[in-house]
């Protein structure tokens, strides 16, 4: 990690803590909503900067743009079954094959762009952070190889479903009752169990259907044009 990158991380961390502190003290446990939205936004910043600093070929950048587009398209193409979407699966594959920071970018930009069609709102930053982190974790060096094969991606699909649902429940809980309470969160979590199940199944199904072919395609392009 370069010094500049470390600085960005540190600043974000400090800002987040500062915001929390300010939120708790000045506004007396009100506006968790605002604060959590800001934290979600801020959490994206270091990832973005670390991507900017990374050197990479033009072709790699363009291919990342393709993966973002495909994630968005996935959300639109499979519009017929609610919540049964391949976004998390595509983001995971992108992370695995293109690295952690590319994975984060794919996830967060897919959220941002797909909401152009599905509607932007206060939930956008949460989605950006959630999908972004799913892509990021998938790209971590020690996970990569594990996630390419069967037990790995099934587990990760489940994890991604729980993680995404967990983050989005935060937003749901906050929108019911703007001061955070575990009760509201619990209720949101219980209410979201069916969707959580759909997320889990869709993640596993799409990872099963897509991970090998998409990986193969990325490998082929990489080999043909010497990209990665």
């Amino acid at each position: 990690m370069s010094r500049k990158q470390a600085a960005v991380w540190a600043v974000t961390l400090l800002l987040s803590i500062g915001l929390l502190a300010a939120g708790v003290s000045a506004f007396r446990d009100r506006n968790y909503m605002m604060i959590s939205m800001m934290i979600a936004c801020l959490s994206c910043v270091p990832f973005y900067f670390s991507y900017e600093k990374k050197s990479g070929s033009t072709r790699r950048t363009v291919i990342l743009a393709v993966m973002v587009t495909m994630a968005v398209a996935g959300r639109l193409i499979f519009g017929m079954i609610p919540n049964f979407k391949p976004v998390a699966a595509i983001v995971t594959v992108t992370g695995v094959y293109m690295g952690a920071s590319a994975g984060f970018l794919a996830g967060s930009l897919a959220a941002l762009l797909s909401n152009l069609f599905f509607g932007q709102g206060p939930w956008t930053p949460f989605q950006m952070a959630a999908w972004g982190l799913i892509g990021f974790f998938a790209g971590l060096p020690f996970l990569k190889e594990f996630l390419k094969k069967a037990p790995g991606y099934v587990l990760y699909g489940l994890f991604a479903a729980v993680f995404y649902s967990g983050v989005m429940n935060l937003w749901a809980a906050l929108s019911i009752d703007s001061s955070f309470s575990w009760k509201a969160y619990g209720a949101a979590a219980v209410a979201s169990l069916p969707t959580l199940a759909v997320y889990g199944v869709s993640n596993i199904v799409f990872l099963w259907l897509l991970s090998a072919p998409v990986g193969k395609k990325l490998d082929r392009i990489a080999k043909k044009h010497g990209i990665f």
Partner: peptide, 11 residues
């Protein structure tokens, strides 16, 4: 179910 599905509504 109290969950936000608003996101699916199109712009």
């Amino acid at each position: 179910d109290g969950r936000r599905e608003l996101e699916v509504r199109a712009a």
